[in-house]
C-alpha cells in the first residue's frame, strides 16, 4: 500500500513539469504584454527594452521557462507586474479562501449527492425518485454563477439570511459553497443512483435478503457501501469539473481567492500571476484526484490487494 502511495506521489513530479510547461507556453501565446500598459505615453524604445530585461522577457522562451522554474522551486514566483508585489504573497493570501470554498463545496457535493442518490435508488420510479433526480439534474443544467446570483436574490436580498458578498465569516461561505456544490451534488446523485441500481441486481443482495436483514440495512450498509466505489472514482475524475464553478463564484460573491485573482490578472495580462494561479489551481485539482484515488484503493478490499 505505502509503496503504491509513494509511487503515485512521485508521479506528481512529472505531471507538475508537464503542466507548468503547457501553461507557460500557452501564456506566452497570449497577444500583447503588460509592458505596454506600464509604459506611459511618449516612452522610448530604450525604456521598453529596459523593462523587458527587468522582467526577463527579452530571453528566448525555453530560457525564460528554466529561470522561472528555478525560482519557482525556491519559492519565488516572481513579481506581479501590475500589483508590484511578490506573486507568492498574493497566492498565499488568496489560497486559503479558495481552499475553504473548494472543500465545503466538495463536502456539499458528496453528502447531498449521496443523500439524493440513495433515496432515489431506494424509491426507484416513484414520485420521490423523480423529484430527487430533477433536483440533481438542475444542479448540472445551470452554471454555478447563475445559481449564485439566484441564491443571493433569494437568501440574501429577500430573506436576509446570508450576507450578499465578502469573505469574513462562515456565513459568507455558505451561499458560494452551495452554488458550487449543487452541480457536483447532481453529478454524485446520478452516479450513486445508477450504481446502486446496478448493485441491486447482484447475487449477494439476494443472500442478504435471505438472511432476513431489513431493507434499510441492506440498502445503506451493503448496497450503498458497494455503490460508493464508482462514486469515489467519478468524484476524482470530475473534480476539476466540480470545482471549475469556483472561479466564477468568487467573482459573483466578490470573494478573494485564486479564481478572482486569476481573472483580474488575465484581463491585465499580468503573466506571472496568471501562471502561478493556473498552476496552483490545476495542481490542486490533480492532488485532489490523487487523494480520492488513494481513498478508493483503500476503501475497496479488492483494489487494496492489487497494490499490496
Amino acid at each position: 500500500m505505502w509503496v503504491y502511495v509513494l509511487r503515485r506521489t512521485l508521479l506528481l513530479i512529472p505531471i507538475f513539469f508537464a503542466i507548468s510547461v503547457v501553461i507557460f507556453s500557452l501564456i506566452h501565446l497570449v497577444p500583447g504584454d503588460p509592458i505596454d500598459s506600464l509604459l506611459g505615453p511618449g516612452s522610448s524604445k530604450g525604456d521598453r527594452a529596459e523593462l523587458l530585461a527587468l522582467y526577463g522577457l527579452d530571453k528566448p522562451l525555453p530560457m525564460q521557462y528554466l529561470y522561472w522554474l528555478k525560482d519557482f522551486i525556491t519559492g519565488d514566483m516572481g513579481q506581479s507586474i501590475i500589483e508590484k508585489q511578490p506573486v507568492a504573497d498574493m497566492i498565499f493570501y488568496n489560497l486559503p479562501f479558495t481552499m475553504r470554498l473548494g472543500l465545503l463545496s466538495l463536502a456539499i457535493s458528496f453528502f447531498l449527492g449521496i443523500f439524493l442518490g440513495i433515496i432515489s435508488a431506494a424509491a426507484k420510479n416513484t414520485f420521490v425518485d423523480y423529484i430527487a433526480m430533477i433536483i440533481a439534474l438542475l444542479g448540472v443544467t445551470v452554471p454555478a454563477f447563475w445559481l449564485g446570483l439566484i441564491l443571493i436574490l433569494a437568501f440574501s436580498v429577500n430573506l436576509g439570511w446570508f450576507p450578499v458578498s465578502g469573505s469574513g465569516s462562515f456565513s459568507h461561505l455558505v451561499l458560494p459553497a452551495v452554488a458550487v456544490g449543487l452541480g457536483g451534488a447532481g453529478l454524485v446523485a446520478r452516479v450513486t443512483r445508477v450504481s446502486m441500481l446496478e448493485m441491486f441486481n447482484k447475487d449477494f443482495v439476494l443472500l442478504l435478503y435471505a438472511k432476513g436483514l431489513s431493507r434499510n440495512v441492506i440498502i445503506v450498509k451493503h448496497v450503498f457501501r458497494n455503490a460508493l466505489m464508482p462514486v469515489i472514482t467519478i468524484l476524482g475524475l470530475r473534480l476539476g469539473w466540480i470545482l471549475g464553478g469556483a472561479v466564477s463564484i468568487e467573482i459573483v460573491f466578490s470573494r478573494p481567492g485564486i479564481g478572482s485573482m486569476l481573472l483580474t490578472a488575465l484581463f491585465r495580462r499580468d503573466y506571472p500571476v496568471v501562471q502561478a494561479s493556473l498552476i496552483f489551481l490545476t495542481m490542486a485539482v490533480i492532488i485532489g484526484a490523487f487523494i480520492t484515488d488513494i481513498i478508493y484503493s483503500y476503501a475497496d478490499p479488492r483494489v487494496r490487494d492489487v497494490y499490496k
Binding site: 476539476g240 472561479v247 486569476l262 493556473l278 489551481l281 490545476t282 490533480i286
Partner: peptide
C-alpha cells in the same frame, strides 16, 4: 492532462 485541468481554466486561457 487536459482532462485533469478544469475546462473553464483551459477555455479562459
Amino acid at each position: 492532462l487536459t482532462w485533469s485541468m478544469p475546462a473553464i481554466l483551459v477555455a479562459l486561457l
